[in-house]
């Protein structure tokens, strides 16, 4: 419930910002963003009220539209999993995208792919070097297909 309240407040802020920002646009450019911003604000208010009402001790859960029971199945168990591994992987992914241009698409991808394989390995069970080799082969093949066959100009950077 606290999450919902926070989300609603953030979204209300977004809605107010959009309304203010759209003042600078011409009449036909601001119409649509305004309508949407107002809708977003109103809906977020509803969410805010809902979360406050439902957090009250005397509230009995109704049958429909339970905001708390939301999300896909993995989401409900999501926070319990390997959060550290997830965050490390996410950092690698961010680095991956940032390195694409300076280092080159192929090099950055092989590097980041291998790092992820290392982070995600199960000690004792995975034959790490085979997965790294497999990953490198896959990456190389895709890069070749895109560069040469499909003529997509993937960033070359320092190391191709």
């Amino acid at each position: 419930m606290r999450n919902d309240r926070l989300t609603a407040l953030v979204l209300i802020a977004v809605s107010i910002f959009s309304l203010l920002e759209s003042n600078r646009y011409g009449p036909l450019s601001r119409l649509f963003p305004r309508v949407v911003a107002v809708a977003l604000g109103v809906l977020s208010l509803v969410l805010l009220v809902q979360s406050i009402v439902r957090a009250r001790p005397g509230y009995r859960q109704k049958s429909v539209g339970l905001p708390s029971a939301s999300g896909a199945e993995p989401a409900e168990t999501g926070s319990s999993g390997d959060m550290r591994g997830m965050l490390f992987s996410l950092l690698v992914m961010v680095a991956w995208t940032l390195l694409l241009e300076p280092v080159g698409f192929w090099a950055a991808s092989v590097l980041a792919f291998s790092t992820l394989v290392l982070i995600l390995r199960t000690p004792g069970k995975t034959v790490v070097w085979k997965n790294i080799l497999g990953g490198a082969i896959l990456v190389t093949m895709f890069v070749l297909v895109f560069r040469i066959a499909l003529r997509v100009p993937l960033p070359e950077g320092l190391l191709w």
Partner: peptide, 28 residues
């Protein structure tokens, strides 16, 4: 066990390449 799956992956990748690569012949 997992490692043995690798060749299968390779087969699929080669299949992809075979489907896409002939197009380069036109452009060579």
């Amino acid at each position: 066990m997992r490692v043995q799956r690798m060749p299968r992956v390779a087969v699929v990748i080669i299949a992809v390449a075979v489907m896409v690569l002939p197009t380069t012949l036109f452009a060579a």
